[in-house]
């Protein structure tokens, strides 16, 4: 089992008092499997993704990633997991604006000590970024930037790919093309994919699908 999430609860403190975003979530993901997480805004899907990505910690519950209990890890341990085992694609790309495209692609792999230039080149080629490698992110279109972000995520060959509305900032045509590429490459690496989206059509392309409503699996 690549990913095993059990009975997750997460509460935020707000001005109006505590707000329970997640109320007992369970899910699993196997290698090569793709799972869509859908739900309305505020249903807690992004929060769940952040918890699985070790970017935040749950109040209760257990998250096992590749047999590691995220809750039991310290910051350094979670960071190691993020750079080596997990890969996150954000809606807002989160590229490093001061690094060129090639450096952005290589960045996470270099952090993880798993830099493979040949694989970088393959990714750039497949993503159609070969011409853009010497440019800075701000010189790229949104679709190109997201392809850079995806290439960066896949460069260290993560076992789990987490994607948070990866095409949310893109127009429909671009979104479809980017998505195709991502699914293709994820399949090739054999990673498990957890995709947060509110697009039904996108969700339909995943092997499984979970719908979140008010912090619970519907």
């Amino acid at each position: 089992m690549l990913l095993d999430v059990q009975n997750i609860h997460k509460t935020y403190q707000t001005a109006d008092g505590p707000f329970e975003v997640l109320r007992g979530i369970d899910l699993t993901l196997d290698a090569g499997e793709t799972l869509a997480l859908t739900g309305e805004s505020g249903s807690g899907k992004s929060t769940l993704l952040h918890l699985i990505g070790g970017l935040d910690t749950p109040n209760t519950g257990r998250i096992m990633v590749d047999d590691h209990d995220i809750a039991a890890l310290d910051d350094a341990g979670r960071a190691a997991l993020r750079r080596g085992t997990l890969g996150v694609v954000f809606q807002q790309f989160n590229l490093i604006p001061s690094l060129k495209v090639a450096d952005n692609i290589a960045f996470q792999a270099r952090l993880a000590g798993q830099h493979d230039p040949a694989w970088d080149a393959t990714l750039a080629d497949r993503m159609g970024l070969t011409e853009q490698l010497n440019k800075y992110p701000e010189q790229l279109s949104g679709g190109q930037q997201q392809r850079v972000a995806i290439a960066r995520t896949l460069a260290p060959k993560p076992r789990v790919v987490l994607a948070d509305e990866p095409t949310g900032n893109l127009d429909e045509g671009t979104a479809a093309a980017v998505m195709d590429l991502m699914l293709e490459l994820v399949a090739e690496t054999g990673a498990g994919l957890l995709l947060v989206t509110h697009s039904d059509s996108l969700a339909g392309r995943m092997s499984r699908r979970l719908h979140l409503r008010a912090g619970q699996i519907a």
Binding site: A80, R82, G84, N94, F107, L111
Partner: peptide
């Protein structure tokens, strides 16, 4: 600050 957030999200330990 945004860069710091990205670096950490990509797995750079805080320390």
């Amino acid at each position: 600050r945004p860069v710091v957030r990205t670096l950490r999200a990509l797995g750079l330990p805080l320390r």
